[in-house]
Nucleic acid binder design. Structure first.
Lengths: 121, 121
DNA sequence: TGAATATATGAACAAGTGCTCATATATCAT
DNA sequence: ATGATATATGAGCACTTGTTCATATATTCA
């Protein structure tokens, strides 16, 4: 009845041993949070489309807007999100800002997920 | 000046050639949508924690609730989302429902992303 | 310097999401 | 059948998010 170990729960526990074992192996709360944040960035159609486009070629903001049928503002806002997530990088050439993928993992995560989608159907 | 091909845009286009080339290689709109939907499921701390836990061991609802410090209801709602996304499966044993990962891709997508997070810092 | 242009950003609003609470369903035990 | 228990689910609410609109910033060119 004493609870001096890990944060207890108000719910009935059926398999204390399993819970204890899994609890030990759980990564730091912060890491799982970061992981979710990372996936959250991919969890939007617009951003996925932008990422795919950039996986094909470096592009400037207005090209992306045209390609995807979005306003310049919408693209710019989303690129900011992608920038913060360090998924894209940019270089400035005069008035034009060119964006490209910042990381090789992006492509592989992408492909892995795409494969899952395919096989699921 | 005529626009009889692909859906045009109201934005200035700087590199028509690039846009045209990338447009050709864009996957079906639906596939990118599905991809985003897939990632959206991973884009929540609670679900990521559930998925990680299940990657360690099959668990029942109340064990998960206890482990993660959530209400039974919250866990159940999220499991429904994971079920719909076909990321987890379940088997019933009397009153207890056991959940487990439904797909090997889950782990690999997870690991790939985790690796990205690590290297990023 | 001043006009033009490419991009960035803030505010606001509609739509979506995850939790809680109450309650329904399903199964077991008596 | 009745009560206990494990899970599922609907409604409601606070919070988040993606877009639009207006405007700011930055760079080029004349």
């Amino acid at each position: 009845m004493s609870s001096r170990e890990e944060p207890s729960c108000d719910v009935t526990v059926i398999h204390e041993d399993v819970v204890a074992k899994v609890r030990q192996s759980m990564p730091a709360e912060e890491d799982l949070f970061d992981l979710a944040e990372f996936f959250k960035v991919f969890g939007d159609t617009t951003r996925v489309r932008i990422l795919y486009a950039l996986s094909q070629s470096e592009m400037c903001v207005c090209d992306l807007a045209c390609l995807l049928g979005l306003t310049q503002s919408a693209v710019s806002h989303q690129l900011r999100v992608l920038k913060q997530a360090k998924l894209v990088r940019f270089r400035r050439d005069g008035r034009v800002v060119y964006y490209s993928l910042d990381d090789d993992h992006v492509k592989s995560v992408f492909n892995q997920a795409y494969q899952h989608i395919q096989e699921r159907n």
